[in-house]
Amino acid sequence: MDQQRIWDADAAGRYDTPGTGMFAPEVLGPAVDRLAELAEGGRALEFAVGTGRVAVPLTGRGVPVTGVELSPPMIERLRTKADESAIPVVVGDMATARAPGEYTLVYLVYNTISNLLTQADQVACFRNAARHLGPGGRFVVELWVPELRTLPPGREATVWHCEPGYIGLDTYDVLRQHVVSHHFRFDESGRRAQLDRSPHRYVWPAELDLMAQLAGFRLESRHADWTGSEFTAESRSHVSVYRLPSPTPGTCETPALDTRTP
């Protein structure tokens, strides 16, 4: 499944759900608050900016945001909310596309790094983030924790969400660390459903940390959500903040990375 074909005009038209789901105030508000804090008054770059779910309110908080986005239909929908002067967008792949200038913050939210389907591309994404950041800059990744403990031997699928009118089901290829998410949305009769599918490569937090080290980052913090809840073995997702080292005052050397978790 090609990502550009997945994120077509039809998908872009269904993406925004104002006030509910990922657009619910209790979901979106803490993310914007935390990202504004981490930007520390500087410029931010959002990989996979989409329709501007985060970029638009973050810009409203006074943080200049530039985006990278692969899908032209998603950008077209963003343009109904903010023009190019408000939120510039570079059309391209988040693993390779280059945005002009230097940033204090690069962020990649709502599991989107898993849209890169190889380990090499995910590593390249970390390196691309590092290229855009100045010394001491941060890269923030929001990602789900693979739920393999719910997958008994011999079973290839799990239902991860079920509510009236919707069923979310994942099928796993554990050899390649691939998962395909299936979204079944039923009509009012309950007899007919629309199916949307999206492929992902799942990543364990420890593997993500190694990718960060390869790009010159260290882990600054990890929490279970945007409000700062403790990350535990039972957490279903995490918000990880990676940081480039800052030059030691009076020297031109880069200090050794502290790879320990704070």
Rank of each mutant, 00 (worst) to 15 (best):
R149C: 03
A120I: 02
L244N: 04
V68D: 06
V180N: 05
P152R: 05
V65A: 10
H183I: 09
L78A: 10
E207G: 09
G41E: 04
D187L: 11
P245H: 09
F186K: 09
A97W: 14
Y15R: 13
R243D: 00
G250V: 00
A120V: 14
Y166Q: 10
F231D: 01
G168V: 06
R218D: 02
P100Q: 05
L105D: 01
Y15F: 15
G134F: 00
E220Y: 02
Q4M: 05
R218K: 02
G62Q: 08
G41L: 05
T20E: 13
G136C: 12
A82M: 09
D225L: 02
M22Y: 09
L117N: 10
R192T: 15
S229L: 01
A44G: 03
V89E: 04
Y172P: 12
V239A: 04
P255C: 01
N115M: 12
S229C: 00
T251L: 09
V90P: 11
Q119P: 00
L195C: 11
G168L: 04
D209I: 01
D209L: 00
H182R: 04
A48D: 08
E102N: 02
P57V: 05
I167F: 07
P25I: 11
R131G: 03
P262I: 01
P64M: 06
F139M: 09
A206K: 13
T51L: 11
P18W: 07
V63E: 08
G13Q: 14
M211R: 04
D173G: 14
F186R: 10
D258P: 03
Y166D: 08
V145G: 01
P18F: 05
I167Q: 03
R197Q: 15
L35I: 06
G92E: 11
D33C: 03
R155W: 03
G21E: 15
V179K: 14
P245D: 01
G101F: 00
S198K: 11
A212W: 00
E234P: 00
H132K: 02
Y107D: 01
L105K: 00
L28V: 13
Q177H: 13
R149H: 06
R191K: 13
G19N: 02
S85D: 10
L169T: 15
R197A: 14
F231I: 02
R131A: 14
Y110M: 11
T259A: 03
A193Q: 13
L58E: 08
F23R: 02
R236P: 01
W226M: 12
E26R: 07
G62Y: 04
G41M: 07
C162I: 08
Q194H: 11
T66Q: 06
S237E: 15
R197D: 14
D173I: 05
A44I: 09
E163N: 11
D170W: 08
H238K: 00
V239T: 06
F139A: 10
T251G: 11
I6L: 15
P73G: 07
H200M: 13
V56G: 08
M22T: 09
D2I: 04
E142K: 03
K81A: 12
Y15I: 04
I87L: 14
D170Y: 07
S71L: 08
S114V: 09
A130N: 04
L219R: 03
